[in-house]
Design a protein around this nucleic acid. Structure first.
Length: 588
RNA sequence: GGGGUGGUAGUUCAGCCCGGUUAGAACGCUGGCCUGUCAAGCCAGAGGUCGCGGGUUCAAGUCCCGUCCACCCCGCCA
């Protein structure tokens, strides 16, 4: 009992061969006489024909087959009769005339049909994920994922990187996301934390002299979920010694080009364009811009300081800004559609959205009466407005204007169909500030993480003017998704201490939390830096799906539960006792 | 923690605004007919805790309140 071929393999040239196929009954078409079975495995579908005049016993057996029965079928490869070929199947020129059938297993009726374009609710799919994963488009995604990680390993191996595992049971770190904790049975009252990333370990490996390290590794963050965020996710993590930013960025570009070439046969243009953090915000309203389309934000503040429109002048008066975008050709929008845009802008934090239509009848707008002809002209010029365009304006604090217009820009790109789904457009974001001010907690925080190196010439300003200091950090953005980020690290103890002082991390606290790193920095730490990529997001984009749940075999729901296994679950009193844990749950 | 969408047959949905007959459709399932289909076709049939709890009413799938689940978003995610 051995299969000779998979269900996606047989072609015209195999005509006449005796073959054995194994797979699942995908579909049955019973004509009373002839019975057709689509036999499916992960490789494809082959039509099997049961003809009563060839073997009545086998034909009778085929009569009882149901969806998802598992079969072994022996038969002859037959060139399909003229006009019965199926161009939708890779095996569509042939069929297998069965002369023997073994039912390897039966199946009870399914909760849903196994088909690519399923309309089935996700909660049902996740409860029966083992059936959901039989769908070929999900299998395709996971196979692409496999090919991507294989390409990554081949590439990094050939460039001298060594795959080293780092612990999952490690210590909690003070900053960053909430940790997943694991109680220690042997050390009552103490906890491990699952790593949010292998950051500190990979730096230690550099200090150990491994020079080039990589790992494709699970990371854990106990934060709320989104369509592109799961509590456990996978990073392609790498670190190199004796390098500067250019080396890491160059290697990254080569790696990405290699992945696309190996898995999709696509050439990726290099070098990737670069945007400073500030330019990204100014021009696109986000630090992860989708640069497949224009629709850039333009600052109009200088043109409107003395306009007669109170909404604009009031915002400018308190130090705010007025910015606009040109929704090319959208003057056709109805009043109702514009109202929808206004509603959207409000949900993005703006107080309102001013607009101006350029029609063949002239300018149509509720605000022109407050503006002089000159300022209308200069606004139009700056936004490169032409007939049929729709101009949109937001006036508020810079942060609100940026956020609202940045997100409106994405909505409009979608409305205007400006997004080419076949295009993959990388961009580097650089020149990040080293620190940002946390308004809620009234303190300075590292923008990236506390081990990020400042640029050399800014080192003297770390303490006197920390917000002016730029970091040796870089994010890589693909089609509007942040897919990776990294930095050159601090390798000198004195600078690391300055950094901790700047974020008000006391010497004692720093010692407790990172003493091992500070110690290690004193024993000849080489200059080093690296980057980590979100594998799930990369695979999601390359698969053309819009949630990472579709490229993870067993994903969790938005409440971080697994509908298949029902995790998380109760544990026994004994288990808790052994861990010295008492529950204290506040019910409403 | 907050805002939004959805939950009716195994599945996908209609019915809900405007309460009132036996809650419908398609697909799937079961049985029958059928020798070139590939979403096979034709005929017949079975199948419902209208998410759950409470309220209003002569009467609730439909109105009101609460709650659970899934999804989208904000906060959060160095």
């Amino acid at each position: 009992m051995k299969r000779t071929h998979t269900c996606g393999e047989l072609r015209k040239k195999d005509t006449g061969r005796k073959v054995t196929l194994m797979g699942w009954v995908h579909r049955r078409r019973d004509h009373g006489g002839l019975i057709f079975i689509d036999l499916r495995d992960r490789d494809g579908i082959t039509q099997v024909v049961f003809n009563p005049s060839i073997d009545s016993e086998v034909h009778k057996c085929a009569h009882d087959l149901k969806s998802e029965y598992v079969l072994s079928v022996e038969g002859d490869v037959n060139l399909r009769p003229e006009d019965t070929e199926n161009p939708n199947l890779s095996t569509g020129e042939i069929e297998v005339i069965a002369n023997r059938i073994d039912i390897l297993n039966s199946s009870i009726p399914l909760p849903f049909i196994i088909e690519d374009d399923t309309g089935v609710a996700e909660n049902l799919r996740f409860k029966y994920r083992f059936l959901d994963l039989r769908r070929s488009n999900i299998q395709k995604n996971l196979i692409l994922r496999h090919r991507i990680t294989k390409a990554v390993r081949n590439f990094l191996d050939s460039h001298g990187f060594i795959d080293i595992e780092t612990p999952f049971l490690t210590r909690s770190t003070p900053e960053g996301a909430r940790d997943y904790l694991v109680p220690s049975r042997i050390n009552p009252g103490l906890f491990y934390a699952l790593p949010q990333s292998p950051q500190l370990f990979k730096q230690l490996l550099m200090i150990s002299g491994f020079d080039k390290y990589y790992q494709i590794v699970k990371c854990f963050r106990d934060e709320d979920l989104r369509s592109d965020r799961q509590p456990e996710f996978t990073q392609i993590d790498l670190e190199m010694s004796f390098v500067d930013m250019e080396d890491v960025m160059n290697l990254t570009e080569e790696l990405m080009a290699n992945i696309f070439n190996e898995t999709k046969g696509m050439k990726i243009d290099r070098p990737f364009p670069r945007l400073s953090y500030q330019d990204a915000l100014d021009r696109f309203g986000t630090d992860k811009p989708d640069i497949r389309y224009g629709l850039e934000l333009k600052d109009l503040t200088d043109l409107l300081t003395s306009s007669g429109f109170k909404v604009f002048t009031d915002a400018i008066g308190i130090g705010g800004k007025v910015k606009g975008i040109n929704a090319k050709g959208l003057a056709v929008l109805s009043r109702k559609e514009i109202d929808e845009l206004i509603e959207k802008s409000k949900s993005y934090g703006a107080k309102g959205l001013a607009w101006m239509k350029l029609t063949d009848k002239g300018i149509e707008s509720p605000i022109t009466k407050f503006l002089s002809d000159d300022s209308i002209k200069s606004i139009s010029k700056r936004l490169e407005a032409e007939k049929d365009d729709l101009l949109l304006f937001v006036a508020d604090t810079l942060a609100v204007v940026t956020e609202a217009l940045g997100r409106l820009r994405e909505d409009i790109a979608e409305k205007l169909n400006l997004i080419n789904e076949q295009e993959y457009s990388f961009v580097w974001i650089i020149d990040f500030p080293l620190f940002e001010y946390n308004d809620d907690e009234k303190r300075l925080e590292p923008m990236h993480h506390p081990f990020t190196s400042p640029i050399d010439e800014d080192i003297p300003f770390i303490e006197p003017e920390p917000l002016k200091v730029k970091a040796k950090a870089y994010d890589i953005v693909l089609n509007g998704n942040e897919i990776g980020g990294g930095s050159i690290r601090i390798h000198r103890k004195d600078i690391q201490e300055k950094m901790f002082r700047a974020i008000n991390l006391g010497e004692e606290e720093a010692r407790t939390k990172f003493g091992f790193l500070l110690d290690a920095l004193e024993y000849g730490a080489p200059p080093h830096g690296g980057i980590a990529f979100g594998l799930d997001r990369l695979v999601m984009i390359m698969s053309g799906v819009d949630t990472i749940r579709d490229i993870i075999a067993f994903p969790k729901t938005q409440k971080a539960t697994c509908l298949l296994t029902n995790a998380p679950s109760d544990v026994s009193k004994d288990q808790l006792k052994e861990l010295h844990i008492k529950l204290d749950i506040h019910k409403i």
